[in-house]
Simulated assay, not measured.
Amino acid sequence: MAQLGSYISDGLSVHLMVFLFLVACVAGLIDTLAGGGGLLTVPALISSGIPPLIALGTNKFQGSVGSATASFVMLRNHRVRWADVRRLMAGSLIGAMLGTLLVQQLDTRWLSFIVPLVLALIALYFLFSPRPRQMAHPRCSDRLYRRLVVPLIGAYDGFFGPGTGSFFALAGVSLRGQSLVDATAVAKTLNCASNVASLVVFLAAGHILWSAALVMLTGQLIGAWVGAHALFRINPNYLRYLVVIMSLSMLARYLWLS
């Protein structure tokens, strides 16, 4: 906590604030349309000199607002029905809380190693994974999906996070037979639940840099609002290479400055 208090008192430069705001705008848009916004925001925060655990907590704050905005639009426009997702959201929430509690038990030196490794692996997944194909029939029962698959993805979100929205969408298409657009819409609500649950744990631990969080929150709101209104007019797969290029750029910045 002493390290966190010292860092907050030092503040961030205007240049870094503008940089984080712009990254959050793009991440909010991309996360709503295709998932993977955390591939931009997490390395952006860490490359700004913020310790890994605080970077994860700050990312959850601004990410929660973006996913909540997208979820609100989905529910208000009846793209998703509350009755269909409420139990799934509960599973995502529980998994995320457990994942967040786990990551806070790790030595931060391990996080400095894990963060770039996972970012690189997820970027490769976005680059080389085939387009998910809708199944004629669900390959996973509703109970198994709700009680195991969704909580596991939620736990990953609580532990680290980037790419969670895409994993939820992929699971909906490949395991539950949803269309890609419908699975993406449902994924917003599940990602919202996991983000909020993780945020509560990070708030309790004091692992949030408020100056960066508030600036990025504004950017996420703008990006998520634009993305939510464009979701059903833009093919999410068109953004795949943009996600990869930007995430690898953020990763290169992180490795260069570390």
Rank of each mutant, 00 (worst) to 15 (best):
A83T: 12
P236W: 05
A70P: 08
L257E: 15
F126R: 09
A27L: 04
G95C: 04
G28D: 08
R86Q: 14
V14M: 11
L20N: 14
F159L: 11
M97L: 14
G37W: 03
A171D: 03
K188C: 02
V244Y: 06
L251H: 05
A44M: 07
Y145D: 07
L251W: 05
S166F: 13
L111G: 11
A197W: 03
C140E: 05
R139P: 02
L180D: 02
A228F: 08
L4G: 00
G172T: 01
A96P: 05
G37L: 06
G66L: 07
S249F: 15
R253T: 08
L239K: 04
L101H: 02
A2S: 01
A252G: 07
R81Y: 09
F159H: 11
A212T: 03
C140V: 12
H15G: 11
S258R: 15
V173T: 01
R253E: 09
V149G: 07
M17G: 15
T164F: 02
H207A: 14
S64Q: 05
A224M: 07
F19L: 12
L22K: 10
L231M: 13
W110P: 00
A120W: 01
L152E: 00
Q3D: 12
F113A: 14
Q62L: 02
L248Y: 04
V26M: 13
V42N: 06
T69Q: 14
P52I: 02
R133Y: 00
F232Y: 14
M1K: 10
L111Y: 10
Y145L: 03
D142G: 13
L248V: 10
